[in-house]
Write a protein that binds this DNA or RNA. Structure first.
Lengths: 119, 119
DNA sequence: TAGCGCTACCTCGCGATGCAGAGTAGTATC
DNA sequence: GATACTACTCTGCATCGCGAGGTAGCGCTA
């Protein structure tokens, strides 16, 4: 099942997506779910996002600001901290390297010489 | 720890990498480990690769050919089956969509109109 | 007051995966 | 027989995504 594979692929990636969304400005959980949900491959529910937000916050990558919405429960706005921005930059760096590695995997490795001429 | 994040990122991705490596032609486990190990982000050991190969084979994405190596135990060459190639194509498709989604996440969403002019 | 629906947040428990560590087996060399 | 190298296998743990379920504030209708 491709769907099961996508679930595995998201591991780690969703954390990155949350940070990326927040790099555009502060936002609250419910809206982040909606923002990611616009993309089929990132369709998620609260039970996926809230634990990520909690962990990111615990690790000091996010800070919190509670704002009464007057239209329901208080909204908890998350935004990147300084180290959160650093973290996101590191992630971007690693993702680029991974992309590069994958594109190299698609091409047979260039042996310096042809001391291996099987078949 | 970024390293822990990379570990999470690899979930699902390694399966894709293995299929990609095999799309270049048949190969055996030990060599696949070496092929992936050339890239820092994909540095793995046998205990990571062999379970993937076993699962991929069980799901009929790979077929096996045993070849005595005369230099140790018999080598077990893996190669893509027909549905293995289909699977890899599907994965490529999904990865492209994910890449596209990520690049859109980096840009604030364009509202068709400005019926939402917050700030 | 009671019931319903929407917004918004949080927690529990399961399944899948990556991976360190340890083990098995075949061949060659000493 | 002991050591070393190649090649593959198994066990057990940690982490994450996510379905299911729960709480709470506000507004509407009856």
């Amino acid at each position: 099942m491709i769907e099961a594979w996508i679930t595995q692929l998201r591991k780690g990636l969703l954390e990155y997506c949350v940070l990326t969304v927040l790099s555009r400005g502060e936002n609250y959980g419910y809206e982040i779910v909606a923002a990611l949900g616009r993309f089929e491959e990132f369709s998620v529910t609260e039970s996926t996002i809230y634990p990520i937000l909690a962990r990111l916050r615990q690790e000091k990558y996010l800070k919190v600001r509670d704002v009464p919405s007057g239209l329901g429960p208080t909204r908890r706005y998350f935004s990147l901290t300084a180290i959160g921005k650093v973290r996101l930059a590191e992630m971007n760096h690693h993702l680029k390297k991974i992309e590069s590695a994958i594109s190299q995997l698609k091409t047979p490795p260039r042996k310096d010489n042809s001391h291996e001429s099987d078949t």
